[in-house]
Amino acid sequence: MKRRKGWPRMHRVFQQPFKTAVLLLVWGWLLLLVLTPNLLVVGASVMTRDPGSFLSLPLTLDSYRQLFDPLYLDVFLNSLYMAGVTTFFCLLIGYPFAWALSGLGKQRQTLLIFLLIVPFWTNSLVRTYALKLLLATNGLTNNTLMGLGLINEPLKMLYTEGAVIIGLVYLLLPFMILPLYSVFDDLKRELLMASHDLGAGKLSTFLHVTVPLTLPGVLAGVMLVLLPAMGLFFVADILGGSRNLLVGNVIKNQFLDARNWPFGAAASVLLTLAMAVLLFAHRLSQRRLGEEAQT
């Protein structure tokens, strides 16, 4: 059958009622519950705050200006800093982890990956709370250290930024490891051997072969860690005390407590833009690799 260009003719629609119904269902769902709501948020971000109906005219960019108010700018930069540190530690732990994992036997890899996703399937709130047991002033870590005579006074770990970072790393580490593992798994051992045969040393092979080939995995991992690390408000609430530590806390407070929707929406648009930049970088790195592989 010759395929026509242009919109499907009505008789084709009726010939394929199943296809039409499925596509209507999924497009309907995504347009109503993903696209429309996101456009609403963008719309809300340029409106004026209204205590009664949440939003009112006139249109204004005040909320975006407010993002640069020193009070909030501090929170954003601090949140970005904490997310950056979290991502750094996830990468630092995750990269060698994925490397070591990919070098094991197939059966053992399957088992270890399973053990890695078990936490992913368990309640993140409960796991954050479990960290609290370990980090509290009279908690297990302090008791153990004092019992061993290593410290005389309990360390203050809970309700610090450090505790929040530990919590974020703990929750997000699997999201860094899984994409890294998938690139290491695809990495052709022959390429590394070829590099070695061509006279490259270990360090040189690592820098010129391993790192570029695993870059898409690194970027995917960074994407999956950096943005959630700014949004997981409950980690900051539970481990950091009730302060505005993360962008997520700001957004939550603006929407649920302060009722300043335009400002909360603007903060969320900012996060979305950050995601767009990271997605773009990820695609770019993948495409570059694809081109290199073809030539």
Binding site: V26, W27, L30, L33, V34, L35, T36, P37, N38, L40, V41, A44, F54, M223, L224, L227, P228, M230, G231, F233, G248, I251, K252, F255, W261, G264, A265, S268, L271, T272, M275, L279
Partner: peptide, 26 residues
């Protein structure tokens, strides 16, 4: 369609959360 599904999976939960809240209230 693929792109939208990918974006839903990748976007921070909090972005999805407030957009849905806005929709439901509206």
């Amino acid at each position: 369609l693929r792109g939208m599904l990918f974006v839903v999976m990748m976007s921070p939960e909090i972005v999805l959360a407030i957009s849905l809240l806005a929709l439901f209230l509206l």
